[in-house]
Write a protein that binds this DNA or RNA. Sequence first.
DNA 1: TAGATTGTTAATCGATTAACAATC
DNA 2: TAGATTGTTAATCGATTAACAATC
Lengths: 205, 205
Amino acid sequence: MGEEIPKIIIGRLPLYLRVLRRLKNEGEVYASSQELGEMLDISGAQIRKDLSHFGELGKRGTGYEIEFLIEKIRQILNINQVWNIAVVGIGDVGHALARYNGFVNRGFKVTAIFDSNEKKVGTEVQGLVIRDIKDLKEVIHKEDIKIAAVATPASAAQSVTDSLVENGIKAILNYAPIYLKVPDDVLVEYIDPAIHLQKLSYYLG
Amino acid sequence: MGEEIPKIIIGRLPLYLRVLRRLKNEGEVYASSQELGEMLDISGAQIRKDLSHFGELGKRGTGYEIEFLIEKIRQILNINQVWNIAVVGIGDVGHALARYNGFVNRGFKVTAIFDSNEKKVGTEVQGLVIRDIKDLKEVIHKEDIKIAAVATPASAAQSVTDSLVENGIKAILNYAPIYLKVPDDVLVEYIDPAIHLQKLSYYLG
DNA sequence: TAGATTGTTAATCGATTAACAATC
DNA sequence: TAGATTGTTAATCGATTAACAATC
């Protein structure tokens, strides 16, 4: 129970959740590891192994009860609650994030948006007022925000990150095309479309 | 030489490229594997091992010549050319992609944008006219497009993908929150902010 | 009971790290 | 030459897969 779960397994749980939700929507009640594996292009053995870290979640001979497994994974990932998210930098990407409806029911809600441009501050996006980046401290504490998305230009990303960390942010989704320096107890995930495309072009010869 | 390079190594090359470019901008001429490793939070040994797959690219006692290594990695990744990109689905995400300037100088250029909404078709984004999705075939061939980004709603993503594949697209950057079924010779990379956030929230207890 | 599928062990496979001779 | 750092081998570590007894 107390064992450390490998990061790579945690990384697959959200994918399991996504296909389980789809199956549930389609009216399915049970799913076997093989069935799930085929939908994700991974082996059934791997899915069983991954899930076994969290207890005996399936029924021999039957498979996994979808509704139960969804609830279980939501618990494991701590998304049986809604996390408030701050978005910093309301350019195209920040704007898209603020309006993104893929967060609904997946555990997250953008509740604060920031920019440093005086012309943007005070205007609204999706019913949220863009706040001045100077108000970071106040808003983060008031809204009890622990996760932030950095969508500023690369030049501003590190200093914005430093402010976020200083104000208690523990996890960052970084869209700026640089590696962010953060303390060991702060987590960062990177999203950079150019990086993803560069992986693809290798194989296009 | 003829050996297959592990996918995980190819995945790191774009990151190496990014820090090398940064060092070059800062006026540096040489970088050691340890220095690069510290900037990326990986070991120098791993960087040396990765690069050794492509020849003897460094100088013992000195490190790697930055400009040379950048050029070499660009060659390996096939981004010493510009790939035309099609973006399908011009909602917030598609719009952000069309206007994204992080592609410049990194090997890619959005040259065609598509939507199925008649009200959007014909309007311009970043100097590009939104084309009807029915014109996929014509435009893809005319512009010699091999890579596409899918930024449609989940419900349309698979059928759009099928059309793309039918028309010769070999690599897809998928923003729709579903797993896409494609033939073995077509590559897909996935970007889903909710999935990334779910990985983070696990660690927030 | 017969059939199906889990949970788990052991075997395999692959990636990372440590260490150091080669060499700039 | 002395110092530094690569390229590479061997050792270690970790992840995936195969196989099957347990059991629903």
